[in-house]
């Protein structure tokens, strides 16, 4: 974990680059992050959604898993559509709630995915993020 963090930080410092990932069929990157934790407004909203829904109680404060699986690992496997299906329908028999009735989660599903994908990719290097200044 330490090394990728360092590399990304160095890029950030020397090239002032923004790490971004492209969403399918969109021009806007899925998420943007500098220095590992300063993120764009949408990704910030994803973090707020993660926190408000108390996902950390099962998936851990760092998304590394507790009673629920590690989302760092899960999002290396799940596609965006699969992720959204699991969140909305749940995996009830395993204890994952169906969030489809939760308006806050459902309206911010794209942002939630962006934030967690950034964590899984290793681009967002810590769970707690802040909004980058424009």
């Amino acid at each position: 974990m330490l090394q990728p963090t360092l590399i990304l930080s160095l890029i950030g410092v020397f090239a002032s680059a923004t790490v971004s990932a492209n969403a399918i069929s969109q021009d806007k990157p899925l998420y943007s992050v500098v220095e590992g934790y300063k993120v764009d407004n949408d990704t910030m909203q994803g973090f707020r959604t993660w926190r408000a829904a108390a996902c950390d109680r099962c998936h851990g404060p760092n998304q590394e898993g507790m009673v629920g699986p590690s989302l760092i690992e899960s999002l290396k496997v799940l596609t965006e559509d699969q992720f959204k299906a699991v969140v909305s329908e749940g995996r009830v028999e395993k204890g994952m709630p169906a969030w489809k009735t939760n308006e806050k989660v459902m309206t911010h599903l794209d942002q939630l995915y962006a934030y967690l994908k950034g964590r899984s990719d290793g681009a967002i290097t810590r769970a707690k993020v802040v909004e980058m200044k424009r």
Binding site: L2, C58, H59, G60, P61, N62, E64, G65, M66, V67, S70, R126, A127, K128
Partner: peptide, 15 residues
């Protein structure tokens, strides 16, 4: 207590 067993109770940025 057992929920914590799987992982995730490590502190952020704490070597």
């Amino acid at each position: 207590a057992g929920i914590g067993m799987a992982a995730g109770l490590e502190k952020d940025n704490d070597g």
